[in-house]
Design a protein around this nucleic acid. Sequence first.
DNA 1: TCAAAAGTGTTAAAAATACACCCATGG
DNA 2: CCATGGGTGTATTTTTAACACTTTTGA
Lengths: 229, 229
Amino acid sequence: MAFSYEHARPALAVDCVVFGLDDEDLKVLLIQRGVDPFQGKWALPGGFVRIDESVDEAARRELAEEAGITRVFLEQLYTFGAVARDPRDRVVSVAYYALVKLSDHRVVAATDAREAAWFAASELPSLPFDHDEIVGKALARLQGSVRYRPIGFELLPQKFTLTQLQRVYETILEKTLDKRNFRKKVLGTGLLLELDEVEQDVAHRAARLYMFDKKRYRELEKDGFLFEI
Amino acid sequence: MAFSYEHARPALAVDCVVFGLDDEDLKVLLIQRGVDPFQGKWALPGGFVRIDESVDEAARRELAEEAGITRVFLEQLYTFGAVARDPRDRVVSVAYYALVKLSDHRVVAATDAREAAWFAASELPSLPFDHDEIVGKALARLQGSVRYRPIGFELLPQKFTLTQLQRVYETILEKTLDKRNFRKKVLGTGLLLELDEVEQDVAHRAARLYMFDKKRYRELEKDGFLFEI
DNA sequence: TCAAAAGTGTTAAAAATACACCCATGG
DNA sequence: CCATGGGTGTATTTTTAACACTTTTGA
């Protein structure tokens, strides 16, 4: 079956920059390409947009198919439309970035026999197409967004310590923060629920656990409240 | 001549939200559609991406063709990819927003006999496709960007008074600002060149003219300087 | 009892805000 | 001479930044 159009059409693809955070650093998920061009090379997960799905749906589908990742924070990043960004065909790609709780996705499901693996964002191999540029833009967006929107929580388990949260910000912003000032500020937002629980199995005083109060955030947001760290 | 592909492909279009500022308010440029669907209705300027041009180039070309607008600030906004956003065909649209000096484009060149006109952003007619949503997103982006990036100047003549600049911010942010504090802040950026000129033909004391120091901004930007009003 | 991280307040500096009058110009 | 907008400084409040020790816990 073939499809015919009066004018030539670019192919339309999606690519996803998936971020995760572990004890060491910020990670990006890469997939070993199963097809040419660049077969065997590490690249961003992605694929072509089908005719009967939205572009957003395509991004979610590719994440699920290629990495077994579902129900994550996913947001459109930028559309890359240079004529020669793909050496074979004209392909325009809508890039997305995702934030996942690494604890949930430590073992990446490489579904169709393709390898998937986490790489430190600061030590990525050189990537095919314009994927280096896409990752660069995603990092910049992440750094810009994390201070003004409550998305840092997406990288942590549902229950987390304030020190873990501080590490999220320090890792993304690439600078150290003052512990007391940080706590003052995040608790000052009124968006952290203090739980009657502490972390388990640590070889020192156990820290209190908190949750992000998403419901309250949505209410405040309606009234024009701006999150800021 | 027809083009045939193994898989069905969405058509790829661009749409542009062009902002201008006059004495009254913030304006958006609309074009009367020359073709179906929605022939005769006011809509955003735009059109299909050609196979041999980048998406950015397509946006600039459409602006030039449909409105005679060239050499303006133009930036990608968001890609709209819902399946049914166009009632006839599957069309994914990469939206852009542009800022123009209305003084330069007061008379819009309606090239191919189609009408073009400026509408107050707050009183737009209801637009076809998802163009209402696109304009909404463009306004939100403009409001978010104007405080952190020196783009307000794009709406003014090269030489402007501080009162004109203040009006840019007041109009976009939809709130009044204190004159003394505003001046303190913009002059404090060190990015305004004070000229030895004043405005002409006003029935009161003539205000001093300033220019944005783009060269100096680019230097400071390299060193991590962040513009902020 | 030691190591390791949790938890906690105050002070100083900087930035943001509120606020009102005189000045220059053209009509 | 008057109407119109141009231009200017200070005091207060709020926000941010700097900074160090005691507590808890498990090994």
